[in-house]
Design a protein around this nucleic acid. Structure first.
Lengths: 132, 132, 132, 132
DNA sequence: GTGGTCTAGACCACG
DNA sequence: GTGGTCTAGACCACC
C-alpha cells in the first residue's frame, strides 16, 4: 500500500493518511472486510513515524471506517454507519465551498455537474440497500 | 458585526473569521463594495487580538475577497476573480466529502439534492450588468 | 492631468504619484520645462489630500525631476542629473528582479528582449548629448 | 547563514530576509533542495523575533521559493514555478527603472550592458535534466 | 525538536 | 484615524 503524502501541505500527516484510505475505499481499491497493514508495516511503507499511523488508525476506528482486532490487525469495516455529526459537518463544509465557488463565478450548472461527476466516479456502493 | 467563534475548534481563529465573512457575502449580508469594520473595531467586537484580525484581512486580501484602502479601512471586493488553484482544491475537497457521504449510505439523489439546496441558498450573484 | 492610482496597492500614494509622473515624462506626455499643476490643483484632480501631493513634489524635487518656483508653481526639469546612489539602487533592484526572473525560468534571451523592448518604448531622449 | 539587514531601510525586515534568500539562491550559495535554518535558529542568528522570520518563510512558501516540512524545517524548492502575476510585475518595475535610467542619461547600450552583466552573474540555472 | 497560533503592547508610515 | 511591523513570551499540534 503506497500513498502520496505531501509534507509541504499543512494538513497533518495522520489526516492525510486517513483521507487516502477513505478515498481508496471510494475508488474500490480497498474492499470492505479487507485487511490493511499493521501500524508498523504501514509506517515503514510510507516512511513515517508509527505514532502517526497509530493516530490515523485511531480516528478511523472512531469514525467507523476500520475495525481493529488485536489478533488480526486491522481491516476495513463491512459497513459504515452514520457517524455523529457527519451530516452537519458535510453541510457546513459544502456550504463554504459552494459559496466560494459561486463568488468566483461558478454557476449552478457547472457546480452541479462537478458534484455529479465526482459522485459517479465513486466505485464503492453499500453492500446493503438496493442500487438505484 | 458579530461572529460565532469556536475556540474548541482547531481551525485557527483567523481562518474562522475569514470563513464567516465569506459565508456572510454568500448570504447577502455583506454586499460587494460594502465597508467592513476596521481591524481594531472587529478585534474589539469579537474579543480577539488585532493581529489575529489583521491576519484574516491579509489572507482575504490575497484571496481577492476584500480590498484594503489605506484611507478608509477595508471593503468587500466588487468582484471575485478566479483564484490560483481554487478549482483543483474544490474538486479534491468535494471528492473527499462525496466519498465519505457515499460510504455512510447517502445515495446520489440525496447527495445531489443537498448540493443543489445549498447552492440555491446562496444569495450572492455575480454582477453581470453595467456599472451603475 | 489624470493618474491611475491604486488604493488597494500597498505602495504609498505619494510614491505612486511620483512614479506616474516619471513614467509620463518617459512616455513624452510631460516635456522638460513644462508646467505641472499646483499642489492644490493636482490634489483636487486626483482626489487626494494636498499633503500627499506635497510629499510627492518634495521627493521629486529632491530627486531632480521637477523644479519648484514659488512664483510659477512647479515644472519638469530641463535635465535630470545623476542622483546620488541611483546607479547603485538601479543595480541592486535589477539584480533582485533578474534573479527572480531566472529562478522562474526566464532565460537570458527572453530577459534581454524584455529589457530592450521596454527601453525602446521610452520616448524621452536627453536634450544634451548626441543620439546614438 | 548571515544576512545584512538594514534597519534604516523602510523595507520590512521579513521582506529583506526574503530578498536575501532569493539572491543567495541566485548566487548559487543556496542550492535547490538544500536545508535552510529553522525559524528559531535564523531568528537568533540575525537577531530578530521568530515571528518576523516566520513571516518571511510564509511568503517564500507562498511564492514557491521554499517548502516547509513539518518534520525537518524548511528547504529550498527543487523548482520555482511561475507565480501569479510575476511577469506583469516584472514588466512594470523594469519600465519604471528603465525610464529613470534613461532620464538620468543612461543610453540603451549602457542599460542593456548592465542588464546582461547582471543576468549573467546569476549562478542558478534551472534543472533541465533528469532527476538524479 | 519543529512550525503555527495568539496575546499584549509598542512604534511607525500613511493620509 | 488607519493598517503594517516588530517584540517578547506563551501555548499548541505535530512528529
Amino acid at each position: 500500500m503506497i500513498f502520496a503524502l505531501d509534507y509541504n501541505d499543512t494538513t497533518p500527516i495522520y489526516v492525510q493518511l486517513r483521507n487516502c484510505i477513505v478515498l481508496a475505499i471510494g475508488r474500490g481499491e480497498l474492499q470492505p472486510g479487507e485487511r490493511i497493514p499493521t501500524i508498523r508495516q504501514l509506517a515503514e511503507d510510507v516512511g513515517v513515524n508509527p505514532m502517526t499511523v497509530s493516530k490515523a488508525y485511531t480516528i478511523m476506528k472512531n469514525e467507523g471506517f476500520i475495525q481493529v482486532d488485536r489478533r488480526h490487525g486491522a481491516q476495513i469495516s463491512m459497513e459504515f454507519p452514520d457517524h455523529r455529526g457527519f451530516h452537519q459537518r458535510l453541510e457546513s463544509e459544502l456550504r463554504l465551498y459552494a459559496t466560494e465557488a459561486s463568488l468566483r463565478g461558478m454557476d449552478e450548472t457547472s457546480f452541479m455537474a462537478m458534484c455529479q461527476e465526482i459522485y459517479r466516479n465513486i466505485q464503492y456502493r453499500p453492500a446493503t440497500g438496493e442500487i438505484k
